[in-house]
Amino acid sequence: MEEDQEAVNLAADWADISQGLRKDLGHQVYSQWIKPIQPGNYCKETGTLDLYLPTEFSANWVSDRFADRLSLAWKIARPDVRHVRILVHPGRRQLPELRLGSGGRPGSAPANDSAQGTTDPLSAALAGEAFASLGQGPAGIDASQTFTTFVTGTANVLAFNAAQRMAAAEKPQFSPLYLKAATGQGKTHLLHAIGHAYLASHPHARIFYCSAERFMVEFVQALRQNQMIEFKARLRGFDLLLVDDIQFIIGKASAQEELLYTIDALLAEGKRLVFAADRAPQSLDGVEQRLLSRLSMGLVADIQPADIELRRAILENRLTRFASIEVPADVIEFLARTINRNVRELVGGLNKLIAYAQLTGQAVSLQLAEEQ
């Protein structure tokens, strides 16, 4: 009886969480990746919740893209949930190995984008129970999200070049760097690329990557645990600070003030700061004017929606990660022309097509693409 009630409670919590994700991610991404998730086993002793997906492919993909976001959402909804695992549903058919080439792996994030949910190192770094884990090593930097794997075009070349300058060995001419782009256009990929390249040239550097949401969670946790001195000291000890989705710090006065002081302290010491958001600094409603001034005092680099040429190039680049999988040119052209809202959905469409073809034993064809 108790187990049945627990299952009902989990289902109710998941209904609330998933609706929030639907508004945040959009209908297509939600329907394709989030909607199939089913809450599974929950261990009260360890605070571990299992989330099930029907295939290994979808489990890997959701884990890579949304692990941190799902973990944070569950912790907010149920403070007793400390760990979230994304698994294949027991008894469900697993996707055959995708036979990726040496340049990729199952479920790796799409070219030119990464989400707030990322690969296992990031999930482990950002899903820790205690604030004490913050800042231990290059937390959160996904080694697969590099400048090499980022496909450039006229829509994103300014942001790409600015990101490379920020990661270079020599001191950049501007700081902070503010990357502005709509969802799924590649700003998070560039954040990881900056961290990866900077760490390559500064092996002992202290790097912190987080979302604005995570920054606020850590801030509130430090307040509750009377660890604000430690929080400030560690946060200001980083050489490179990377903050994603800064628009979510809207309206949080105390967190904004702490971020403002942190920016001032790091800039005074010549440290590097990079922020990313889906809108320009002046469009961040509810943000204190002094913070807006700091965010825009360096360089604001805009990433425009990918044009048809860039979408083709991204798909072609993505295909180099697959081995022994033939995708006809007319399929690439069809996907590039029909999926034009953002890069994440574009690459997700290609992955979904290949996965479906392998599950059903069909060849990838234009007809199959049109049916999906």
Rank of each mutant, 00 (worst) to 15 (best):
Q5F: 14
V8Y: 05
V8C: 12
D13T: 11
K23C: 09
V29K: 11
Q38L: 14
Q38D: 05
Q38M: 12
G40A: 12
Y42F: 15
K44M: 08
T46I: 02
L49A: 06
D50Q: 13
Y52K: 02
L53I: 10
P54K: 09
T55M: 06
T55I: 01
T55S: 14
E56K: 13
A59C: 06
N60G: 05
D64K: 13
D68M: 07
L70R: 01
L72I: 10
K75C: 13
A77Q: 15
R78A: 04
R78T: 03
R99F: 12
G101A: 15
P106F: 06
G107M: 02
S108K: 15
A109H: 08
A109S: 13
N112F: 05
G117I: 05
G128P: 00
A130W: 10
A139V: 14
A143Q: 12
S144T: 07
T148W: 04
T149G: 13
F150Q: 09
V151Q: 10
V151N: 05
N156Y: 09
A162K: 09
E170P: 05
P172T: 13
S175K: 01
P176F: 12
A181Q: 10
T183P: 07
Q185A: 08
K187I: 00
T188I: 03
L199F: 11
Y209R: 03
C210L: 15
A212Q: 02
E218P: 01
F219N: 05
F219D: 03
A222I: 01
Q227H: 11
M228D: 03
M228K: 03
I229K: 14
D244W: 05
Q247N: 08
I249G: 00
I250D: 14
Q256R: 02
E257L: 05
L259W: 03
D264W: 01
L267W: 00
G270W: 10
D278L: 03
L284K: 01
D285A: 13
L292G: 02
D302Y: 07
L310Q: 14
R311H: 08
R312W: 04
I314T: 10
I314S: 11
I314P: 12
L315P: 14
E316M: 08
P328F: 05
D330P: 10
E333W: 03
R337W: 01
N340I: 09
R344H: 07
G348Y: 05
A355Q: 12
A357M: 03
S365R: 04
Q367K: 11
